[in-house]
Computed example of a mutant assay.
Amino acid sequence: MGLPIRLLPVTILAVMLLLTVKLGDIWQDVTRLGPAPLAAQQQQPNQPAQQPGQQPAPKAQSMPVPNSAAGGKDGEKPIDPILFSRSEIELLQELSRRREELDQREQTLAQKEGLLAAAEQRIEKKIGELASIRVDIESLIKKYNEQEEAELQRLMKIYEAMKPKDAAAIFNNLENEVLLQLLERMAERRVAPILADMDPKRAQQITSEIAARRQMPKLEEAAKQ
């Protein structure tokens, strides 16, 4: 136990020597700085005292803080992914996947709408072409009917000018449709002598068909009513 007692005076002596050296250094710094720095230090009590031999700290420049670190545009705190639980992360991943599917579906619908619009344009073009063709066909049919009517009127005048016996010989060999059209356009006073000179069976057949054709318009009118 004698060793610690002997070291105690030596330790105290060393501490006093260090304090003496420190006090001497501080006094030299105060003498070098003069009264002006002391006054400046008194005016700014909140600033920390500058260590001897330390360079003055430069003024901190304001650096822009990114939104992610500053908490976004509204000053909110940034979201730390570490704070999410596993279920929340899986939910976010599922929502992200669904969002991608919806975007893909929206693109597909947009493409289909474009295809439908193009198809509608082609259909409208075809309808216009068909309408033009229909007009042309109707014009041709009208022209054909006019030519046919003119030809029937010419033949009707020829047969009316013929003798009934000569006309009857020709009518016996004509097709029913052509013969009926001619007889319908001829005057009744011209038709009677021709039918009298025709073959009796042929004349009977033609007479029955003429009567049936005259009844058809009446039946059509009754059906419409």
Rank of each mutant, 00 (worst) to 15 (best):
V65E: 06
I79W: 04
D80K: 07
A161C: 03
V178N: 00
I194V: 15
F171Y: 04
R202C: 00
E151C: 01
E101D: 13
G75F: 09
E94R: 14
Q55M: 10
A39T: 08
I5P: 10
L183S: 01
E129H: 03
S62V: 09
K125Q: 12
D74A: 12
Y144A: 15
R190T: 05
P64Q: 06
Q51E: 12
T11L: 14
A110N: 11
E124W: 01
K112H: 07
V10H: 13
R86L: 03
Q181W: 02
L180K: 05
A192I: 05
A211R: 10
L219E: 15
A49P: 03
S62R: 05
A40F: 08
K22T: 06
A131I: 09
E76M: 14
N173S: 08
I206L: 09
Q93F: 02
A14I: 11
K163Y: 11
L8G: 13
S85C: 02
P164L: 01
Q28H: 07
R122V: 07
Q44A: 13
E90M: 10
G53Y: 06
P200T: 01
F171M: 10
R189W: 00
P9Y: 03
I206S: 06
R99W: 03
F84T: 05
T11Y: 07
D166T: 11
S62P: 09
A110M: 10
A150V: 00
P64E: 05
P45Y: 07
